[in-house]
Structures are given as structure tokens and as C-alpha cells.
């Protein structure tokens, strides 16, 4: 099995490429965003649920469950 290596140096490039790729997409006009405004279409809609997910996974898996920054640790780590 080929080992995967951390993609650290490519991280910034990655974002630049994604941003460039997105510019080919037809922009969505403000009046077309009714659906996008639904809470379930947002990424921080489940902010109360995120705490719960951390509860489930932090004490059982190696990868940090927190998706943001500065969440604070606990002894279960």
C-alpha cells in the first residue's frame, strides 16, 4: 500500500486552485438564494450539534473531532 503523505506544502495552492475553479461557475444571483438561506443548507447551522459530535468522537478516535479553533481540550484526549 502506498503511504499517504501529509499535504502540508500544498495546502495554500489547494485553496487557490479551488477558488480559481469556482470562478468558472455561473454566479448565483442574490434573489436566487432563497433555498441557500435555509438553515440546513448552512455549515454552521448545526453549531449546537457540533458540541455533541465532539463528545462522541474525541474520546474514541485519534483525529480531533473539533472542526473549528480554540475549542479547548479535555482529559479524554
Amino acid at each position: 500500500m502506498k503511504r499517504l503523505r501529509p499535504a502540508r506544502p500544498g495546502f495554500a495552492c489547494c485553496l487557490a486552485i479551488l477558488a480559481a475553479g469556482c470562478s468558472f461557475i455561473e454566479p448565483v444571483a442574490p434573489w436566487e438564494k432563497g433555498t441557500l438561506a435555509k438553515p440546513e443548507m448552512g455549515f454552521d447551522a448545526a453549531r449546537f450539534d457540533a458540541r455533541y459530535d465532539e463528545h462522541i468522537y474525541t474520546s474514541r478516535e485519534a483525529a480531533p473531532a473539533a472542526s473549528g479553533v480554540g475549542g479547548g481540550g479535555c482529559g479524554c484526549n
Binding site: R8, F11, A12, C14, L15, L18, A19, C22, I25, E26, P27, V28, E32, K33, G34, T35, L36, M41, G42, F43, S67, G68, V69, G70, G71
Partner: peptide
């Protein structure tokens, strides 16, 4: 912790987000 991310509206029914965290 460091976070760098981008959220992009792709169509009127699709939205994507990419995040890098260290």
C-alpha cells in the same frame, strides 16, 4: 490551532466548503 477555509455558493441548490486546519 489555525484554520483557513472557503465557502462557495455553486448553484442555487449547492454550497461547498473547504477547510484546512493545523
Amino acid at each position: 490551532d489555525l484554520l483557513l477555509g472557503v465557502t462557495r455558493v455553486v448553484t442555487r441548490k449547492d454550497i461547498v466548503q473547504f477547510n484546512l486546519t493545523q
